[in-house]
Computed example of a mutant assay.
Amino acid sequence: MDNGFGKRLAHARAEKNLTQRELADAVGITWSQISRYEAGKAKPRLAVLLKLADALGTTSETLSGDAEDDNGREITLMLTDQETKEIERFAESESLNFNDAVQRIMAMGLKMRYDKNPDMRAQLEADMPGAYEKLLKLLAKDLNE
């Protein structure tokens, strides 16, 4: 098993001057599980990864090695010409660049989906308490800039 995650976790923990036990307590798991992660013997579930990132003041992408920096994950969208034109129109009307327009559209879409599906929203909150509120704050911040 690749131990890049374990090394990144140990490094981030050391930067925060936390013991394995302190990090484990902050996340709600055992210190031995932190030890297993750092030794490369196990990898966390997504919900635990997100809690680890939050406790360490970083992103899940940074810990997992899925990002080159802390600015998020790069994705490729398969858009039709019509969809691209619609996003470009939206970006222009909101004075945004294309990527920021896509991010806002995706955030609005997630909010709509969570608002229409209480079970999905409840699962989100069970996995990541406060995530829906963070989404609302992100949208409010974007709309007020």
Rank of each mutant, 00 (worst) to 15 (best):
M108A: 07
T58C: 04
G130K: 02
L136I: 08
D127N: 05
A126L: 02
N71S: 15
L56Q: 05
L56A: 12
A14W: 05
E133K: 11
S93Q: 15
N71F: 12
R113K: 12
Q123S: 09
S32R: 15
A101T: 06
L9G: 13
G4E: 08
N97K: 10
R21V: 07
K116F: 03
T76G: 07
A14Q: 15
E92V: 02
L46H: 10
L50M: 12
K16E: 00
A26Q: 13
A126H: 11
Q103H: 06
L49Q: 01
N97Q: 07
K141Y: 04
K111D: 13
K16I: 03
R21G: 05
D2M: 01
L143R: 14
Q82M: 12
K7Y: 09
S64A: 15
L77Y: 03
T30S: 09
A47T: 13
D115M: 10
M106I: 10
E145K: 15
G130M: 01
P44T: 06
K85D: 13
G57T: 08
K134N: 00
R73K: 14
L124M: 00
E22A: 11
L9A: 06
K85E: 15
G72C: 00
D2Y: 04
F98A: 03
E61V: 03
A131I: 07
R121Q: 10
K16G: 10
M120H: 12
R36E: 03
A42Q: 10
L52A: 12
K85N: 02
M106L: 13
D115E: 06
T80Y: 07
D70A: 14
D69T: 11
R89N: 13
M120G: 08
D115H: 00
Q33F: 15
D54V: 07
L143E: 06
T30R: 09
E38G: 08
E86T: 09
L77N: 08
L124R: 11
V27W: 08
D2C: 11
R73V: 11
L23H: 07
R21D: 03
E94L: 06
N3F: 05
R13Y: 06
A53R: 03
I75D: 07
D142E: 06
L18I: 02
S64Y: 07
N99K: 09
N17E: 12
I29R: 10
M106F: 15
S93K: 14
R8P: 10
R8L: 04
R73Q: 14
L138C: 10
M78Y: 15
E68V: 13
A39N: 13
V102F: 01
T76Y: 05
E68A: 10
P129E: 01
D119V: 08
D142Y: 14
I34W: 01
G109V: 09
L124K: 00
L139A: 08
N71E: 07
M106N: 12
T59R: 01
E133A: 05
K111P: 05
A53V: 12
A131V: 04
N97V: 04
S95H: 14
S64E: 00
A101M: 02
G57D: 08
A53H: 04
D69G: 06
L79Q: 02
T19G: 01
E83L: 01
H11Y: 10
T84F: 11
E74G: 14
D66F: 14
